[in-house]
């Protein structure tokens, strides 16, 4: 296991590695959590006659492979918005990628985009489930809403934080937003905008700056 550059922290009693690849690894259970893959987003644009170059889905999956390899994860849990839209079914990249991980278990908790996109076929090799999925003291769902069944891991919002340098210099970085009852993961795909987090008093915020994960809680409040 290679957790270089990960930030180790505790979330709801679990030891979690916040990975700069935009994923969370549960060290105890061997689960890897990701949210908002939006597979086939650029294909959706192209089939809508908007010329966008290809490459983001392939890049995202390459990064997913990398983080699976590093963490030696046994299971991947996708916290919703696995697919972007109906046209995502046109994208062949996933199936090719999936074939390189025959023994990996992948669970997709449906998100709002998955509902409009329609379920991927059996040849996509994923197990589909409606939210919430309860797993011990953890709850997997797409929308960041507190649950009676346990601590919620979610996505949907594409959280980001704006860091300001001098003058007009500023940068928006994807981040992990860890609250008391809910954790929101950054969008896994790079082809997604970021929405600035509004952090509560006890929340923690961790920004991803290239290969590093930084605790920026003090800047977010």
């Amino acid at each position: 296991m290679d957790l270089t550059d990960a930030l180790m922290t505790e979330v709801a009693g679990h030891r979690m590695a916040l990975m700069p690849e935009r994923a969370v690894f549960n060290v105890g259970s061997g689960d890897l959590y990701v949210a908002d893959l939006h597979i086939g987003k650029s294909a959706t644009f192209r089939s809508g006659a908007i010329p966008i170059p290809d490459g983001d889905t392939a890049g995202d999956l390459q990064r997913l492979g990398q983080v699976i390899q590093r963490t030696e994860a046994r299971r991947v849990v996708v916290l919703g918005d696995f697919l972007h839209a109906p046209a995502s079914h046109l994208d062949q990249t996933w199936k090719q990628w999936r074939a390189t991980w025959p023994d990996l278990e992948i669970v997709v908790v449906r998100g709002n985009h998955d509902l409009t996109a329609g379920d991927p076929g059996a040849d996509w090799g994923v197990e589909l489930a409606d939210a919430p999925v309860v797993s011990g003291s953890l709850v997997f769902q797409h929308h960041p809403e507190a649950s009676d069944s346990g601590y919620v891991l979610s996505g949907h919002l594409h959280p980001a934080i704006r860091l300001r340098g001098g003058g007009r210099d500023s940068i928006l970085l994807p981040c992990f937003h860890v609250g008391e009852a809910v954790m929101i993961l950054p969008a896994f795909t790079r082809f997604a905008g970021g929405y600035p987090v509004v952090a509560g008093k006890t929340d923690r915020v961790f920004a991803i700056a290239d290969d590093a994960v930084l605790d920026v809680t003090a800047l977010a409040r």
Binding site: S42, T44, F45, G48, I50, I52, P53, D54, G55, D56, G59, H84, A85, H113, T116, R190, F191, A192, G193
Partner: peptide, 19 residues
């Protein structure tokens, strides 16, 4: 359908710069 093909120009700029 329309909202699925909406992205900010800034995001598109990044995609073009990458690919």
């Amino acid at each position: 359908g329309a909202s699925q093909v909406q992205a900010s120009s800034s995001l598109l700029f990044d995609v073009f710069m990458r690919h």
